[in-house]
Nucleic acid binder design. Structure first.
Lengths: 232, 232
DNA sequence: CAGTGGTCTAGACCACGGT
DNA sequence: CCGTGGTCTAGACCACTGT
């Protein structure tokens, strides 16, 4: 008889091996926890931990009473590291710096206003900055901040500290949304990044909320060729 | 005395509340599991489950003997659902279809060859296709497949079934990489997608491996304006 | 060495949701 | 109704790592 699998990792590995080996094909119902525990020679808790892990990873689908099935579409999930730009730059061994390009109150464009659910006359603080790696443009930041939600932000010296760094440290958000996209470089952005107007830029937009109140909308635009990568 | 928190969810909520309330500031060491269990009136296992969950979510950092600290950079992870295009289209209530544009053997470009660690003379199967939603272009797919790793792919009728659908169902990968970026539309892609040449396209590249052997490299290019979104 | 998280166990009860 | 996963408990031992 086979050695007992007494660690949840070992159980998970065995189950995954059976899935890869097609002993259990996509859509198949696999044995319940009690039976598996008997077969593996361990406690049900251990099997539960293993199966729960595989379900979180997208390999299994579990429902009470209905049992556990091998996922039909091994759900492709990628966990992205959201760039905290300073760290991202320094991780590459480069010197980080940032330059403030603009800081003024004004009415946000319609797209931003509607994303943040703001009334038409509402004014926000508009901040534009450039992030540098060893002096070269690394990312262009366009941000609108609701200073009613974050009053302290209005008095901040943004030449000393980037808006992002301060917000991350001081204003925990309760809800946020992320959107990845591409945009053609407008003249100002192109000049800041040192690329041609109209060039294809990878963009990352983030909207954050503190309870029902918007904190900020920010769009980072990266120079042509920039890639955000992760393992699967 | 407060009600005992006897579910790991309740414990996690309470800990998260204390972090948000700054009772425990970023970098702070929080009480150990035994003490917390005493305070909350539950078993240590329950506290462990809660803290493990918060650590996985990025709120805490845990090390044996060193204890549990509030993360300095709160949640900098986003889990993206990688689009399985057909489902993505149908989830929007649209009719999915795809058209095969090209299917021929050839030498891959240098970029692809080096990503897959292939020798210079190696030939792969090149597949170009267009994914449609209600007849409109939804995404342009450019793919190279290693038919030595996946011999069955060579005989597949790609007009019946998309390359992606078949590979996902039949060739589980053991390792993969994902890169998100932007590119300017080349003339062929622009024509397929019905946009202007040079337009900024959001792209998603995936490379997958079966053990040490490459399976496929694929790049999906989306029409201007497409966004990949997730909650934080 | 000793403190802290990591895990396993056996048993119990609960909650959801097919039938 | 009742099978299945979800969770809690109390106790135990282990593994890592700071001191």
């Amino acid at each position: 008889m086979a050695e007992a699998l007494t660690s949840w990792q070992a159980v998970a590995d065995e189950v995954l091996a059976r899935i890869r080996r097609r002993d259990w094909a996509p859509g198949d119902l696999i044995p319940n926890e009690v039976d598996l525990a008997g077969e593996m020679g361990c406690a049900r808790t251990t099997v539960n931990r293993a199966l729960r892990h595989l379900a979180e990873a997208g390999y299994l689908e579990r429902r009470r009473k209905a049992g556990t099935r091998v996922a039909l579409n091994p759900v492709r999930r990628a966990t992205l590291r959201i760039p905290v730009i300073r760290e991202e730059v320094e991780a590459r061994g480069a010197h980080y710096d940032h330059a403030l390009i603009l800081r003024e109150e004004g009415a946000p464009p319609l797209a931003v206003r509607s994303l943040l659910h703001l009334p038409p006359d509402r004014r926000l603080l508009h901040v534009v900055a450039l992030h540098l790696a060893d002096g070269a443009p690394y990312a262009h930041e366009d941000r609108w901040v609701d200073t009613e939600t974050v009053p302290d932000f209005a008095t901040l010296d943004l030449t000393q500290q980037s808006a992002n760094a301060w917000l991350v440290q001081n204003v925990p958000y309760t809800r946020g949304a992320l959107a990845l996209s591409a945009m053609a470089a407008d003249p100002d952005t192109a000049e800041a990044l040192g690329c041609a107007p109209g060039a294809a830029l990878f963009t990352l937009e983030r909207t954050t909320w503190k309870a029902a109140r918007p904190i900020t909308w920010v769009r980072l635009a990266y120079p042509p060729g920039h890639r955000l990568t992760t393992d699967l």
